[in-house]
């Protein structure tokens, strides 16, 4: 669920890649991701993880010296994971300094990207106060979309005319329909979206979501299943798999590796939380 949820969230991903060193491992040394050095390090901090049968471990935020700076449950929402990361950095500013590369960055769009990744969206928008090209206009629109400043987003998108950016502009506009729960507009905005676009998986995910909320559940499930089978995995593919299984495993409380009803990605199920998109945009 972490991979389909928080780890695929743009805010979590941006902050993780800017301010954290990310690592995962199997508590069993025999697992494919087993790492005895990590196990020794972590079980000094969380002794309860050293036993034979342990509860699903939390996500840990730890200093290199082994001091716990924060943690969240394995089934936490994207908002909760993001909040825990922000709090850990606030409580430990010594790990939140600008990197040398960030200090040296001179291009407005790159400086805006850094601010955006750090969650400083207003600053990011201000850094692009005078866009000089269409890439900058598009990124400004993206920032304003996250801020839900729809008029400002549309104003920025009005400057995006380049053929190779039109899919991006279209997808940004579709997000407004999603956030406002206008499902027919969302479905129509993404109809016949180019399959070779860099936003294709995102568009397919949201078009299926629109159909789901319009009562076309069968079609939505098929679309998510088809998307989850695409060889080009990304966060939207994982989220589609989660959406499909949220509907399919509704009411199920236990999972088994012997279960024949695996997800399109081969998972035995998703414990903890349902995909929240099936309830709406969650304002």
């Amino acid at each position: 669920m972490l991979r389909a949820g928080p780890f695929s969230d743009e805010r979590v991903r941006g902050l993780a890649n800017r301010r954290f060193v990310t690592f995962y491992f199997d508590l069993s040394d025999a697992g494919a991701a087993g790492d005895p050095d990590a196990r020794k390090f972590v079980t000094k901090i969380k002794k309860e993880l050293g036993g034979g049968a342990v509860a699903t471990p939390n996500l840990l935020l730890v200093s290199p010296e082994g001091v716990l700076a924060g943690e969240t449950g394995n089934y936490a929402s994207s908002d909760d994971v993001y909040a825990a990361m922000k709090k850990a950095l606030k409580d430990h500013p010594e790990f939140n300094a600008e990197s040398e590369a960030e200090k040296a960055e001179a291009k407005p769009i790159e400086k805006a990207r850094i601010a955006f990744d750090l969650g400083k969206r207003k600053t990011a928008a201000e850094l692009l106060a005078k866009p000089e090209n269409e890439d900058e206009w598009l990124f400004l629109a993206h920032i304003q979309r996250w801020r839900e400043k729809w008029d400002e987003m549309e104003s920025a998108l009005s400057h995006v005319k380049r053929d190779d950016l039109l899919d991006d502009a279209r997808m940004e506009r579709a997000w407004k329909a999603w956030r406002e729960a206008k499902y027919e507009a969302l479905r129509d905005a993404l109809a016949d979206f180019p399959v070779d676009s860099n936003r294709s998986t995102e568009a397919r995910y949201f078009q299926a979501l629109a159909r789901y909320h319009l009562g076309e559940k069968k079609e939505a499930l098929k679309a998510w299943k088809d998307l989850a089978k695409t060889p080009d995995e990304d966060g939207w593919v994982y989220r589609a798999d989660w959406a499909y299984m949220t509907e399919k495993q509704s009411g199920k409380s236990s999972f088994s590796s012997g279960d024949a009803n695996r997800s399109p990605l081969g998972r035995i199920g998703y414990m903890g939380r349902d995909n929240p998109d099936l309830k709406g945009p969650g304002k």
């Binding site: 972490l2 993780a16 301010r19 954290f20 060193v21 990310t22 690592f23 995962y24 491992f25 199997d26 508590l27 697992g31 991701a33 990590a38 972590v42 969380k46 993880l49 342990v54 509860a55 699903t56 471990p57 996500l59 840990l60 935020l61 730890v62 200093s63 290199p64 700076a69 990361m85 850990a88 950095l89 430990h92 790990f95």
Partner: peptide, 8 residues
């Protein structure tokens, strides 16, 4: 900081 996901 390290962001660590132990898997059980």
């Amino acid at each position: 900081l390290l962001l660590i996901k132990p898997i059980a």
